[in-house]
Design a protein around this nucleic acid. Structure first.
Length: 392
DNA sequence: TCTGGGGTCCTAGGACCC
DNA sequence: TCTGGGGTCCTAGGACCC
């Protein structure tokens, strides 16, 4: 049996917990509502009554809910709270799979002797989290993770839903199309266009027919999900880890010097994370989003690991100029590295260009910068005082 | 609904190999 | 040079998730 547990309106709930004057009020966590291009990250249930929701522009949220309490996210505090909650989960099972900052799967198989029937364990876990952290969770219990996830979703907030073994298919087929987790806006539209208006109707079609309409993987997914079968969606170890950094600028960038400085900043962030998290990668990505929101990307795989930020920056610049429609304003830039491995590429030595000193220098700087309470060492070009103003 | 940031997986086409 | 079949790796783009 799997339990899926999801913290209700997590970021907003932490704000209401830490600031009692926010309780019972519409709290909206996200970017500055007076700045263009910022969005809502999470909002309290009080704010949802006004039509505010995640991913909405913050300016829009302010129009809908002018008296809302707008706060900037305090990520480190949320991580702290998340760790508290996850450690409670650990007391209930040796097998806890954290999915994100605010949700986890807990394998309750074989815990009956210790804790009793899983549905009672679930209720006790909910009570325990509330008592020890002040936060409420929604929980779903089922014989597979997919159903448990859907079940916790329909019980929000502060709910619990138990789908008994044998009732998975019936449960899924009783739900509206929008509850099909893994089918987003595009797939929902396509489903409706193909004449599917409920999960039940999908279940009436053969897997082969679904694959003809929605691709091999997509068709199998729809077939399995609509029949309540365990989907292979959550294999624990992913094989293609990637690390990236991107930023949306308050105003579109057109000046090459400013653009290059922005790219340099992103390269530094990516290299820092790669180094501190112990990854190696040969594949560099660049992402450009223009003012009209059209988005394009280029990537390049090198023969050896890209292990200095100098080389990364050089590579990113080349990718950028191979792709940029000169003069078109840029809203977002992103830099990433994929196919990350925890072991250096052995082939690399064959192509080593003798950057050993540079590598050592950068490693030393990154090691220094990852310490707490030290003045950071950074490229002079990236000092705030050296950064050209992007707004006009 | 004028739309952040960090990820994962899938697809289709091309290059290249045997 | 009017061209099979199988496989792998890479690239660009898209969909989705929190």
């Amino acid at each position: 049996m799997f339990l899926h547990v999801d913290l209700d309106a997590f970021f907003a709930s932490v704000e209401q917990l830490d600031f009692p004057q926010y309780r019972g009020k519409p709290v909206i966590v996200g970017g500055d509502p007076d700045s263009r291009r910022s969005i809502v990250s999470t909002c309290s249930y009080e704010a949802r009554k006004y039509g505010v929701h995640s991913a909405m522009s913050a300016a829009q949220a302010k129009l809908l809910c002018p008296d809302g309490i707008f706060v900037r996210g305090r990520m480190s505090r949320y991580h702290e709270k998340s760790r508290e909650v996850m450690s409670i989960f650990d007391e209930f099972s040796p097998d806890v799979q954290q999915m994100s900052i605010d949700e986890a799967f807990i394998d309750l198989t074989g815990t009956e002797r210790l804790f009793g029937p899983p549905e009672e364990t679930a209720m006790r876990l909910k009570a325990e989290v509330k008592a020890r952290t002040g936060l409420t969770v929604s929980a779903g219990l089922a014989s597979n993770k997919y159903i448990a996830k859907v079940a916790s979703g329909i019980s929000k907030p502060n709910g619990f839903c138990f789908v008994k073994p044998g009732e998975e298919a019936q449960f899924m087929q009783s739900l509206p199309l929008e509850k099909l987790w893994g089918a987003g806006p595009k797939t929902l539209t396509k489903l409706r266009e193909s004449g599917f208006f409920s999960i039940k109707e999908i279940a009436d079609v053969s897997e082969e027919a679904l694959q003809r309409g929605f691709g091999i993987a997509g068709g199998s997914f729809l077939f399995n999900a609509s029949h309540g079968l365990a989907a292979e969606t959550f294999t624990t170890e992913s094989k293609n880890h990637s690390i990236s950094a991107e930023h949306t600028y308050p105003y579109d960038l057109t000046d090459p010097y400013i653009i290059e400085t922005a790219l340099m900043q992103l390269c530094e962030e990516v290299r820092f994370r790669l180094e501190t998290e112990g990854f190696y990668s040969k594949t560099v990505h660049l992402k450009i989003r223009y003012g009209d929101f059209s988005t394009t990307g280029v990537q390049k795989t090198f023969q050896s690991d890209v292990d200095t930020s100098d080389f990364l920056f050089k590579a990113v610049k080349e990718l950028f100029y191979s792709k940029w429609h000169k003069g078109y304003g840029i809203r977002l830039l992103g830099v990433g590295m994929s196919n990350c491995s925890t072991v250096p590429d052995s082939q690399g030595e064959l192509f080593d260009f003798g950057n050993d000193n540079l590598r050592k220098l950068e490693k030393t700087i990154i090691k220094h910068n990852s310490k707490k309470n030290v003045p950071k060492i950074q490229k002079a070009r990236l000092l705030p005082s050296a950064m050209p103003k992007t707004d006009e």
